[in-house]
Amino acid sequence: MDDVLLDVRGVTLQYKTQEHLVTATFRVDFQVHRSDRFVLLGPSGCGKSTLLKAVGWYLRPVEGEIRLKGRVVDRAGPDRVMVFQEFDQLLPWKTVKENVVFALKASRRLAGREAVDRAMHYIEKVNLTSFADSYPHTLSGGMKQRVAIARGMAMEPDILLMDEPFAALDALTRRKMQDELLQLWEGTRFTVLFVTHSIPEAVTIGNRILLLSPHPGQVKAELNSNGQDEPDPTTGKTLSRRIHEMLFEDEVEEAIGG
């Protein structure tokens, strides 16, 4: 299938703390297709963020391989742009516009006038044109995340990696940002790999949801979502209910077993 953009095969990830060697994920497989809104969902400790970092190559798999457009990933690069959860991902010494231009220039994608034009185009897409010359510390949390998204999209990467980008926002802003992200996606149909621990967010954002179970992270299910979360005509259960049960059933088993 040539539609597969990102191919993760048998990836085992481990990291060391002071005292332990921790296996974050164990032989995880999944395929992201072009224009997917692919969500990695699971409770804390299922290695979903670690998995995203491995795709960005901030961490090397001890087993398995990651292919992007058929090529094995072996370094960090601007073809996979990461949007982080933290508000401090913007460079505080640069204005909104300069932050986006910086990304384009540093990665040697574009230079001069072209870089500025492209930056302004994407800043307009996230409705921040009037704040283009503001410094990040004068913006609200939601605006900062929009800048980070604009910066990521301006790079026009093969895949946008989003690590719980809305987790630190208040509930209302979060809702709004989710809608905005979907609107942006309607416009350009970029491919996004999105990590979250919130079931409603996964159901809203994703068209494909990978469910991970914790300690160590393993694939539990891969589900489709149309974003509506309506009850299934045969079972009468909504998607979020099904996901909830799948995640919850583990805890019950563990409680009985322990």
Partner: peptide, 18 residues
């Protein structure tokens, strides 16, 4: 310097002196 900023730098392909 925060780890996030370091990762941002690496993400955009900055290494060494740059």
């Amino acid at each position: 310097v925060s780890n996030t900023l370091r990762m941002v730098g690496r993400n955009y392909g900055l290494t060494g002196f740059r």
